[in-house]
Amino acid sequence: MRLSLKPQPFLRSTRVHEVCGPAAFAFAALCAGKQAFWIREAWLADIVLPQGMEAYGAPSGILLARPASQIDALAVAEEALKDGAAPFVILEITRPLDLREGRRLQLAAKAGGTTGLCIIPEGMGSNAAETRWRATPVFDPDREDSTLMRWESIKNKSGTLGVWYVRWDPQTHHLHVVPPVGLQPGSAGLPE
């Protein structure tokens, strides 16, 4: 099964979503597509390597904002979501959001017609999030350059939860949903 590059099929637009887990960066880079605003606090020492991102999408379309604190990061995210010039906004969260902050992001996304994605540490989800995903890489014994991942929807305000095994094809830029060994084939396919 194939999915288009756009994040819309599984991330509802005009909403803010959350993702956690070791493959959260790949999930975010994959959703970012052509044009995105990536908000990362300046003190974070980890480097997001554009060459690594290249496999999942275009690093040239990424605008990186480095605010000094989470307060600034939230303000920048709200501004970017509300403006709508960049269709996708990625925000790295370092402390849990309260309901007010989460709700403000949702309203901003709704006003700007944009989609937001918060990369959260495990267990720091906000109640206001539309969906929450856990992305973990999975060992693939068959392929050497495999990007097999397990995407688990652990919160969904307007749909069902589920688990999908996906593999990203960097050559064709397509996301393949694969039925995992030992799982019923029925779970292949993403929510509408």
């Binding site: 554009p50 605008l63 904002a65 480095r66 000094a68 600034d72 501004e79 403006d83």
Partner: peptide, 20 residues
């Protein structure tokens, strides 16, 4: 996009909005 960068830049500084 430039307007957005300017607005955000007034808050966090224009040099903190970067490209690879």
């Amino acid at each position: 996009l430039n307007d957005l960068i300017t607005r955000i830049g007034t808050r966090i500084g224009l040099e903190n909005i970067q490209r690879f």
